[in-house]
Design a binder for these strands. Structure first.
Length: 417
DNA sequence: TCTGGGGTCCTAGGACCC
DNA sequence: TCTGGGGTCCTAGGACCC
């Protein structure tokens, strides 16, 4: 146990970010119930939430709840710009900023006190500057640990500030619902409810053995630690992503070879391009196929030789999807296809040194992917100058999967900026 | 006429090795 | 011949988060 620390961790979280951004960009939308999205609600303004509209809800249901709801398709590049502007404001107060997503970050302000005053003054100044300079409402939680700061910012919403002093932590948490704990979703909440546990206070008081039995040992121990305020996580730069993927919802479509080829080609191209851009290749390829009724299956393969060529990845993905469909002959239609890669490494053929491992066969595979990688590099270069749609495999460029705007996909990709 | 796209982490069983 | 224990990797599925 280290020495007791002061409450110097801030969690800054923009309120209903996409919806607030739309209200900022088009003042005629401000103070009105609006939703960003098309088929599904990506974000709802607080005026819409008052009617029960929430993120993830199908559009028809949202309109049912709120007949006056205004639907906005979304301006994703603007969200990226506004999110970056907010992060610039945060960085003006401390260099120790950990951006978690487009609209959310942790800050450590222990070293900023001499310049800017106590954490509560810093939080107040940040909120004012974001409001005045960017035009968006920001909620901030201040506490001794990341977990507590995050809970505090949720309690502060909308447009508020909550400080949890170190001697008040247990009291602050006790009455809050367990669902506010990071990692407790609907399933865990339901499990806990069967044991009569609904508040964080009840969770903290529950015997460890009961939680282990209910949720498994790892999660049980983690929840107890969080509920009792043991949170060793420090604030620092995010690790490089350990997986990359792309997916496309298709509506209900017959699973024809043409559909598979064009959709998987498009998705594999997106993933392979990102791998090459990062100077990486991947050993494990996973395909997910979803059927009507949200039933889904995954198939994966781990290769000896990492891949990053579009055609190689397409072939592997097509093979995996074919195998999955062959095992589910009764399913005639698919609603979603996804391609992702993990086991990400620096590819051997980009290194100047001779091959260090693998037999003749592995060397052959590597050369095949390397030759394609050379061709892909030419494609990448053209795209860098003239845009992504300028060149590509014909069946892929015209795939239905490309209907979702690229800006949205880019926004959702992990690394901001 | 059940809903977007991009991620992380955990579990459980099996293969394989020492 | 049968038995024991531990570690690592792989696969499939699921919960969860923004």
């Amino acid at each position: 146990m280290g020495p007791p620390r002061a409450a110097t961790v801030l969690h800054a979280d923009l309120d209903a970010f996409y919806a607030s951004a739309e209200q900022l960009l088009d003042p005629s939308l401000s103070r009105r119930p609006i939703a960003v999205g098309t088929g599904v609600v990506l974000a709802a303004s607080y005026e819409a939430r008052a009617f029960g509209v929430s993120a993830g809800m199908p559009a028809w249901r949202a309109r049912q709840l709120c007949p006056d709801l205004a639907f906005v398709p979304g301006h994703f590049r603007e969200y990226q710009r506004l999110g970056n502007e907010v992060m610039d404001v945060l960085a003006a107060f401390t260099p120790v900023v950990e951006r978690v997503s487009i609209d959310e970050a942790f800050l450590e302000v222990a070293g900023a006190r001499r310049l800017f005053g106590p954490p509560i003054a810093i939080a107040t100044a940040i909120r004012r500057r974001v409001r005045e300079e960017v035009g968006l409402p920001l909620s901030v939680g201040v506490a001794r640990t990341k977990h507590l700061a995050k809970v505090a910012s949720q309690v502060a919403k909308p447009d508020g500030l909550v400080v949890v002093e170190p001697d008040d932590e247990a009291g602050f948490l006790a009455r809050l619902p367990v669902g506010l704990i990071w990692g407790v979703g609907p399933a865990t909440r339901a499990q806990l409810a069967t044991a009569g546990i609904r508040t964080i206070g009840e969770l903290a008081a529950a015997p460890g053995a009961l939680l282990d039995h209910l949720l498994g040992r790892t999660i049980g121990e983690k929840l107890t630690a969080l509920a009792t305020n043991v949170d060793p996580r420090r604030i620092g730069p995010a690790r490089p992503a350990s997986s990359m993927g792309a997916q496309a919802a298709l509506g209900r479509r017959r699973a024809t070879p043409e559909l598979l080829r064009s959709t998987l080609g498009y998705l594999a191209d997106r993933v392979a391009s990102r791998l090459r851009h990062a100077g990486r290749a991947a050993r494990t390829v996973t395909v997910r196929v979803r059927f009507p009724g949200l039933r889904s299956v995954t198939r994966s393969a781990t290769l000896r030789t990492p891949v990053c060529a579009t055609l190689t990845l397409t072939e592997i993905a097509t093979g995996l999807a074919g195998a999955a469909l062959a095992e589910h002959r009764a399913e005639r239609e698919v609603t979603l296809l996804a391609v992702s890669v993990s086991n990400i490494v620096v590819p051997a053929f980009q290194l100047p040194l001779p091959m260090s491992s693998g037999g003749a066969h592995a060397g052959h595979e590597r050369l095949a992917d390397a030759a394609r990688w050379g061709a892909d590099r030419s494609v990448d270069a053209v795209r860098a100058r003239f845009g992504h749609g300028a060149v590509g495999y014909a069946t892929v460029v015209f795939s239905d999967a490309a209907r979702v705007p690229d800006e949205f996909r880019e926004l959702a990709e992990h690394g901001p900026s």
